[in-house]
């Protein structure tokens, strides 16, 4: 494993940033560094999905990646090419300001190659609909920790339906207390209480969409 990939995968912040600075000083091609950073993050995601890493490692690796990119980006010419496997619009629904579960899911989806449009917390149904329309995302992820958030999720699905795009958008809901009955109540296609499982469900959605 390349040194930089290894440093990010093993959450060694100082080491990773020193390598990036050193290699940039020696005039190395910045895109090669971007690729290694991404490879390191992919390993973090895999380790999380296997239960070897926890939320702390996801948060810290995200920070290392962000700092590394802030060093690399000024040396890049043009946009960083991104190959994504699909787009996901997501957020914590209206009336709920809990962000942890949503952030975990967004981070894991990015590590797995998805382009994520994170709308933050307390997101109104109309804002979800507008973003789905604007990006053409085939997946909408809604998060909520409090039980009253289920009503907001339901309202968002209704708004998606009223906009006439329900048949082209898969809806997944997530949160510590969601269950099958809530999925049915909301009118979602899937539910999860586990970020890693959420990624697998989104990958399955993409496979179906690409058939």
């Amino acid at each position: 494993m390349a040194e930089l990939v290894d440093a990010i995968a093993n959450i060694k912040e100082d080491e990773a940033l020193t390598i990036v600075r050193h290699r940039l000083e020696f005039g190395e091609e910045p895109m090669a560094l971007v690729e290694e950073c991404r490879a390191g993050m992919a390993i973090v995601g895999e380790r999380y999905q296997k239960g070897e890493y926890f939320l702390g490692e996801l948060i810290m690796s995200g920070e290392i990646f962000k700092q590394a990119m802030s060093l690399i980006e000024p040396r890049l010419t043009g946009d960083v090419p991104t190959e994504t496997i699909g787009k996901v619009v997501m957020g914590t629904v209206k009336g709920d300001i809990h962000s942890i579960g949503k952030d975990v899911a967004a981070g894991l989806l990015r590590m797995s190659g998805f382009e994520v449009f994170d709308l933050g917390v307390d997101v109104a149904p109309e804002a979800f609909v507008e973003k789905v329309v604007e990006t053409g995302a085939p997946i909408l992820g809604m998060s909520g920790l409090l039980t009253p958030s289920f009503e907001s999720m339901k309202n968002t699905v209704t708004a998606i339906r009223e906009r006439g795009i329900r048949d082209r958008v898969k809806v997944i809901i997530g949160g510590g207390v969601v269950i099958e009955q809530v999925k049915c109540y909301v009118g979602a296609d899937a539910f999860t209480r586990d970020g890693a499982e959420g990624v697998k469900i989104c990958q399955e959605f993409m496979r179906e969409a690409n058939k």
Binding site: T147, V177, V178, I179, Q181, V182
Partner: peptide
């Protein structure tokens, strides 16, 4: 007893 079972379950569940 899970919060969502209290809100969206049935008494039997």
């Amino acid at each position: 007893v899970r919060a969502s079972l209290q809100t969206h379950g049935t008494p039997e569940q």
